[in-house]
Design a protein around this nucleic acid. Structure first.
Length: 484
RNA sequence: GCCGCUAUCGUCUAGGGGACUAGGACGCCGCCCUCUCACGGCGGAAACCGGGGUUCGAAUCCCCGUAGCGGUACCA
């Protein structure tokens, strides 16, 4: 029986939860769920200068919003300081690491002199243990460097296959700072060993760190975990996704009206696919289909257009009842509906949301559409007016519609629809000739939900008022033209 | 510079020697549905980075080149 799977997501709290980080967290989450394993969250805050609590908060919020529930943690890497030091001490005692007394200035000078040829020259490795102990005891500052052994280091990456590094290309890297705090590679290995992590699933920008870490596992006498390096996420220009590409933080997408399940689904498909042609897949379905083996090697461009499409798919599938908490506050703020309506939505409100959700790609698009129907004023779209009211018979047709609508009973879409058809028939024109000018009169726009639905939601009084306003507008502009 | 990774439509991708006339999705175009828009349906344009091998046969395997990306810190 294989060891139970234990994976981790280990962000450094120096900013927001980036979509790249979110995707890494997502894959760890999916793998843990798929295998019945444990998903640990670890905050890598050994760099105290750059780490902030606010950042940690934001990352946790982002993960929660996305639905990435962790099983253990968050554990703070800084809490493992004593263990990190002890591990470095052990390596030192066993001769697998050594003290380096070179000052940062001296190192910088050598680097400057040799430029690209530079690699740490191991000068301090020549210092005898006794001498090293004496200088340390005398209070001379030092870092601890790992002594990279001869040979080659390789691993069978789940994503990339066998990957090999010549140890000669790796310098004796520092594992403990002058301050006695651990450098990333030591802290990560020490923690992953301590947490009994079985699979390290992370971005492939860590590939170059992997041989160093494997060397550390071996020196520490710990089992080496399985590695899976995920491809990067790029911006539209093919460069690493960054702030200048616009939205990169998970929170940005929440603010753009993206549903968490849509981003969850979209991110899962960036660098992975189920092997068949399914695309719109919920969390449970993704967990079921997930496997590390199907992860791609190639970096993927983050395509906002496709995200928006996917969001539209989720929007359309959600019930009005589920959507109301998301769009309700905005509708109330606009004064379109009352808080009580949102609390206990009447049928018309649910119908409104159902009508608008299929037309929207983001939740942000719903309120403006609702305003066109329920708002106090009409914003006429110039080109819609020009096109749909151009026919000289427009005013006459609107009046005919008005007359019929004034007596429709009951005021329901089912009752309204045949009445409009009847008007069109009596006028000897297609329904479009009546509905389109009417649509512009009611909404100011040439595009809207079905005209019968629009009339119903708007209410008879408001609808008749807008028809009157439109007729008056047409009359005045007609008069203006005749006066020319 | 050195080390490493990667390379199929504009984008996300299927493909792991013959099933490829290279499939799907987003976007784009056209048609249908239709009171408009959206949804949905149907159809179209659109790709194997280049060159050598291996093989009866390469998108698939190997090598070289090219390009992109990552790393090269007392950051993570």
């Amino acid at each position: 029986m294989p060891d139970p799977v234990r994976v981790r997501f280990a962000p450094s709290p120096t900013g927001y939860l980036h979509v790249g980080g979110a995707r890494t967290a997502l894959f760890n989450y999916l793998y843990a769920r798929k295998t019945g394993g444990v998903f640990v969250l670890r905050i890598e805050d050994t760099d105290r200068e750059r780490s902030t609590d606010e950042s940690t908060r934001t990352i946790l919020d982002g993960m929660t919003w996305l639905g990435l529930a962790w099983d253990e943690g968050p554990v703070h890497q800084a809490d493992g300081l004593a263990r990190h030091r002890a591990d470095a001490g052990r390596l030192l005692a066993e001769g697998k690491a050594y003290r380096c007394f070179c000052t940062p200035e001296a190192l910088a000078a050598k680097r400057e002199a040799l430029k690209n040829e530079y690699r740490y020259d191991r000068s301090c490795y020549a210092i005898s243990p006794a001498e090293s102990d004496r200088r340390a005891a005398a209070g001379e500052p030092f870092t601890v460097r790992f002594r990279v052994p001869e040979g080659t280091t390789a691993w069978d990456d789940v994503v990339h296959g066998v990957t090999t590094f010549d140890n000669a290309s790796i310098e004796d890297f520092i594992i403990l700072r002058t301050a006695g705090t651990p450098i990333y590679n030591l802290a990560v290995v020490s923690d992953d060993v301590d947490m009994r992590i079985t699979h390290v699933v992370r971005g492939d920008d860590h590939i170059a760190n992997t041989p160093k870490q494997i060397l550390l596992y071996q020196a520490l006498g710990a089992p080496v975990p399985t590695f899976a390096h995920l491809p990067m996420i790029l911006g539209p220009d093919g460069k690493k996704l960054s702030k200048r590409h616009g939205a990169t933080a998970v929170g940005d997408y929440a603010g753009m009206g993206i549903l968490p399940e849509a981003l969850f689904n979209f991110l899962a498909l960036l660098g992975w696919n189920p092997g068949d042609e399914r695309e719109v897949m919920g969390p449970a379905e993704l967990v079921e289909a997930f496997s590390l083996e199907r992860i791609n090697k190639k970096a993927a461009v983050f395509d906002t257009e496709k995200l928006l499409w996917m969001n539209g798919q989720y929007l359309a599938r959600k019930s009005a009842q589920e959507l109301l908490p998301l769009v309700g506050p905005e509708l109330v703020a606009e004064g379109l509906v009352s808080p009580a309506d949102v609390e206990a939505p009447p049928p018309w409100l649910l119908a409104l949301v159902d009508l608008l959700k299929v037309r929207a790609r983001s939740t942000l698009e719903i309120a403006p559409q609702a305003r066109a129907l329920l708002g106090e004023t009409v914003a006429y779209d110039e080109s819609a007016v020009a096109k749909q009211w151009r026919d000289p018979a427009t005013a006459e047709r609107l009046l005919a519609v008005r007359e019929a609508l004034a007596v429709v009973e009951p005021w329901t879409p089912e009752a309204i629809e045949p009445v409009l058809r009847d008007v069109a028939e009596r006028l000897g024109v297609g329904l479009g000739k009546v509905a389109q000018p009417l649509r512009v009169a009611l909404t100011g726009s040439a595009a809207s939900p079905g005209i019968d639905q629009v009339l119903w939601l708007m209410g008879r009084q408001k609808a008749l008022g807008r028809i009157d306003a439109a007729v008056a507008l047409i009359a005045s502009s007609g008069a203006a033209q005749e006066n020319r």
